[in-house]
Amino acid sequence: MKYLVMVQGSEADYEAMVGRGSAGSPAWDKTQLKTMFEHMNAINTEVTAKGEMLDAQGLAAPSKTRFVTVDGEGRPVVTDGPYAETKEVLAGYWLLDCASLDRVTEIAAQVARCPVPPGSPEYAVVIRPVDETGPSQD
């Protein structure tokens, strides 16, 4: 079964990773960044070797976000950047094909154990099954 495994973050976390810490998100140093990337790359290597990896991507900072809606006449309305009240955003994901929910939960637990600087915010790792039922054939 396919699962989307998502990690969350905030604009402050992205700033902290480039050395600009804040009250709720301490600055990362180069060693901490290297350790984090090594941890994530080890997960990628494992799930790839087991044939479970379909895709994985880290996402750009929330400040690069673009929201597209339509107005009453169907014309696009574009807003750049996240809304000020946005606390958490999708920071990255894995699309995995795993034999069971237990297996994907093991992988999510590995992701959750990613080393971060002391005092960093903690985010749950989110697992969402991919709905592969397709459109109704009524």
Rank of each mutant, 00 (worst) to 15 (best):
K2P: 07
Y3T: 05
L4A: 09
V7T: 01
V7K: 00
D13K: 02
D13M: 07
E15T: 00
E15C: 04
E15H: 12
A16R: 01
M17G: 11
M17P: 07
M17K: 15
G19E: 08
G21W: 09
G24R: 11
S25M: 07
P26H: 11
P26T: 15
A27M: 08
W28H: 00
W28R: 00
D29G: 12
T31C: 01
T31K: 08
K34F: 07
M36D: 00
E38L: 05
H39I: 00
M40W: 04
A42I: 08
A42E: 09
A42D: 06
I43L: 08
N44R: 01
T45P: 02
A49F: 03
K50L: 11
G51P: 03
L54H: 03
L54T: 05
A56M: 12
Q57N: 14
Q57W: 06
G58N: 10
L59S: 08
A60N: 13
S63E: 15
S63M: 08
V68I: 15
G72Q: 13
R75L: 03
P76E: 08
T79N: 12
T79G: 03
T79D: 06
D80F: 01
P82T: 14
A84P: 11
T86F: 03
K87E: 10
E88Q: 06
E88L: 02
V89G: 05
V89T: 11
V89D: 00
L90N: 00
Y93S: 00
L95T: 06
D97C: 05
C98Y: 06
A99E: 12
A99P: 04
S100R: 02
S100M: 02
S100E: 04
D102F: 11
D102E: 15
R103W: 09
R103I: 03
E106P: 00
I107R: 01
A109P: 02
Q110I: 07
A112Y: 08
C114R: 12
P115N: 09
P115E: 10
V116S: 08
P117N: 05
P118Q: 06
G119K: 04
S120G: 09
S120N: 12
P121T: 03
Y123L: 02
Y123A: 04
Y123V: 01
A124Q: 13
A124T: 12
V125E: 04
V126W: 05
T133K: 15
T133F: 14
P135M: 11
Q137K: 14
D138A: 13
